[in-house]
Design a protein around this nucleic acid. Structure first.
Length: 595
RNA sequence: GGCCCCUUAGUUCAAGGGAUAGAAUAGAAGUUUCCUAAACUUUAGAUCCAGGUUCGAGUCCUGGAGGGGCCA
């Protein structure tokens, strides 16, 4: 039983019987009524003037009258200009609440039998993870959770860029300047260690370039001739030839990096079902080039390079194989996508969580796969997100403005601790419990901060102003949950049950508003999935928490003489907590029982 | 040079072509013998510019300004 769709259906019947007009009920847009007017849903009648041959106000009147007499849930209506505000029968709210209280499918959705893949994180192994990766990981993880809530079987993956010139640079520098340093000997996290030598390489390389320039060599030439670079290139060749010594070193250093990454992922609270490595996939796609040549989708130029012409689709020509026969990124991505579809049958969707600087790349990739005739290509989606900018602009490793993921998380947890101590809120906590709380709050603040913004948009992060704990923040929502947990504890002590509520109670507007919000969660999850946007969930949970706090300030939960009212308020509160907890879990955020 | 994206209170973010553009924060003023004041209440404050489409434009179209990105 869904009130909104009941109304839509009745409206479509009304349009048919009053004006002989046929519309699909689902097409009729209902919007929530603005707070300053009476009503729950609003139907805009301006567009129907042509059909009714009446002015919008009369149209609204007639439709309102029709609804009132043909839809049980509708108790009345009011018309303001072309806006038909639909007022629901007050007794309906508690019936709706009772329906929700019982609904187990929120946390344990029914499988829809569909499977999809979400790729996120996908770092290079020469540098530690930074703020941009945090946005990427939180987004990818959250989108996975959102689709799982709809009943999808979601395979979470990442592809690690573990090969290429960048890692060779770290290896060369480590050999030259490392003096055998290991994570154990130095106490450095493995990814930090590799990053350190990547930076060391860059520094030494620049010195060599400067020296060569002093000797009268042009900058461009110097950049190509610097001995260190030549060594790195030589190492890459050896790696490709599987030279045992180089291979062993490569495995050792990457192993350190993975240990480091795993620590970071664990702190982030994300996980993967399967890892891909570029060292396994970088040769994929070459057969596809041949197939594409035969199939006529690709063509060969005089120099032997292979291209695809996408000018008819408004794009340009794109290279898929160089004249020397080597592959480009595109080739590899084509091969990997095909391999994944063989490996996991029936992938309805494949989501790539990658920054928007690669918009063009994915447009081309998806189009090529479609042209190659793969019918699953329609289910490919680039979850493109904007950069996280600093007040100074883009993060630049050269200028040392990169915000390290580990450091930032540690700092957030520390801030949570300071804040909590200041408020004196850890009485009765064991050290372990307190630390868990700081973790929950610090990470919650960070994740909420990064997820509340529409993924498509770039956003600003100011390291000097630490993320807030008041207002539209993770901790505010967590606090609301903790408050309700206290209510629940007291209700249990008092022996108050919070099962089905009495449907005969008269509710205040804040109470029916809360129930309306509660009833809206599934449509919000669907919308968030459709838009690949956790921000919709974040906004929803915030609205819920905000409304609840208003209710909490206005109403005494245990102070009413009528037991049924007390029981209703407890049940309402507990359901709000349940949905906050679930909504936050879709964002990968935990909620505490007390704080 | 070609292509793509962005511009909303002082600041950080909302707004599925719909009503008087919402929050948060910073500012001002208040609320605690009462279930957690990380809360609540009140107050002031914004759509880059110029055209166009529409009954109706922050949203769609054209041009311009400013910012960012991609391709060599």
């Amino acid at each position: 039983m869904n009130v909104a769709s009941d109304i839509q259906l009745t409206l479509s019947e009304g349009l048919k019987s009053l004006y002989d007009h046929n519309v699909d009920a689902g097409q009729l847009a209902l919007q929530p009524t603005r707070k300053e007017f009476a009503g729950t849903y609003t139907f805009v009648t301006f567009p129907y003037g042509k059909i009714s041959k009446k002015n919008p106000m009369q149209t609204a009147e007639e439709l309102g009258e029709f609804l009132k007499s043909n839809c049980k849930a509708v108790a009345g209506y009011n018309v303001v200009k072309g806006f038909l505000n639909i007022e629901l029968d007050g007794s309906i709210w508690n019936s709706i609440l009772n329906g929700i209280l019982d609904d187990k499918t929120l946390e344990t959705p029914v499988s829809n039998g569909k499977r999809m893949m979400v790729e996120y994180s996908s770092p290079n192994t020469n540098k530690p993870l930074h703020l941009g990766h945090l946005r990427n990981n939180f987004l990818g993880y959250s989108v996975s959770k959102i689709y799982e809530a709809l009943g999808y079987d979601v395979v979470k993956v990442q592809i690690i860029n573990d090969r290429g010139i960048h890692i060779c640079k770290s290896m060369i520098a480590w050999l030259k300047f490392g003096d055998g340093e290991t994570p154990e000997s130095s106490g450095l996290k493995g990814d930090k260690l590799a990053g350190k030598y990547y930076v060391a390489f860059d520094k030494a390389y620049k010195e060599e370039i400067a020296k060569l320039q002093e000797e009268g060599i042009s900058k461009e030439e110097a950049e190509k001739q610097a001995p260190l670079l030549l060594e790195a290139q030589e190492m890459l060749r050896k790696w490709e030839a599987k030279d045992p010594k180089v291979y062993a070193l490569w495995q050792k250093m990457n192993g350190w990096v993975y240990d480091g990454f795993n620590t970071t992922y664990k702190q982030m609270g994300v996980e993967f079902d399967k890892l891909y490595y570029e060292s396994d996939t970088y040769l994929l796609g070459k057969d596809e080039v041949e197939a594409g040549l035969e199939g006529g989708q690709f063509f060969e130029k005089e120099d032997g390079s292979v291209w695809i012409d996408l000018t008819a689709d408004g794009l340009d020509e794109k290279i898929v194989r160089r004249s020397d026969g080597t592959a480009v990124y595109m080739t590899q991505d084509i091969g990997t996508a095909i391999q994944r579809n063989k490996e996991f049958e029936g992938l309805e969707k494949m989501v790539y969580t990658v920054g928007n600087e690669q918009d063009y790349h994915f447009k081309v990739l998806f189009l090529i796969l479609k042209k190659l005739g793969y019918n699953w290509a329609d289910g490919l989606y680039h979850l493109s997100y904007g950069m996280v900018d600093l007040p100074s602009g883009k993060m630049k490793s050269r200028e040392g403005t990169v915000v390290d993921a580990d450091d930032l998380m540690t700092e957030m947890v520390k801030t949570a601790e300071d804040h909590t101590r200041e408020l004196g809120k850890i009485e009765g906590f064991t050290t372990e419990q307190a630390n868990e709380l700081y973790d929950t709050l610090g990470l919650g603040a960070l994740k909420y901060f990064l997820l509340k913004v529409d993924p498509k948009k770039r956003m600003l992060f100011d390291p000097k102003e630490s993320i807030e704990f008041q207002g539209n923040t993770g901790p505010f929502i967590q606090y609301t949950h903790a408050r309700i947990s206290a209510i629940k504890r007291r209700a249990d002590e008092l022996g108050i049950t919070y099962g089905a509520v009495d449907t005969g109670l008269a509710l205040d507007s804040i109470e029916s508003e809360l129930i309306f919000l509660l009833s809206d969660i599934k449509s919000k999850i669907s919308l968030a999935a459709e838009e690949y946007s956790p921000s919709i969930i974040a906004q929803y949970v915030y609205d819920l928490a905000k409304d609840y706090n208003k209710f909490y300030a206005e109403k005494q939960i245990f102070g009413d003489d009528n037991d049924k009212v007390v029981q209703f308020r407890v049940a309402l509160s507990v359901q709000v907590a349940r949905q906050i907890k679930f909504g936050m879990s879709l964002l990968g955020i935990k909620v505490p029982e007390r704080m």
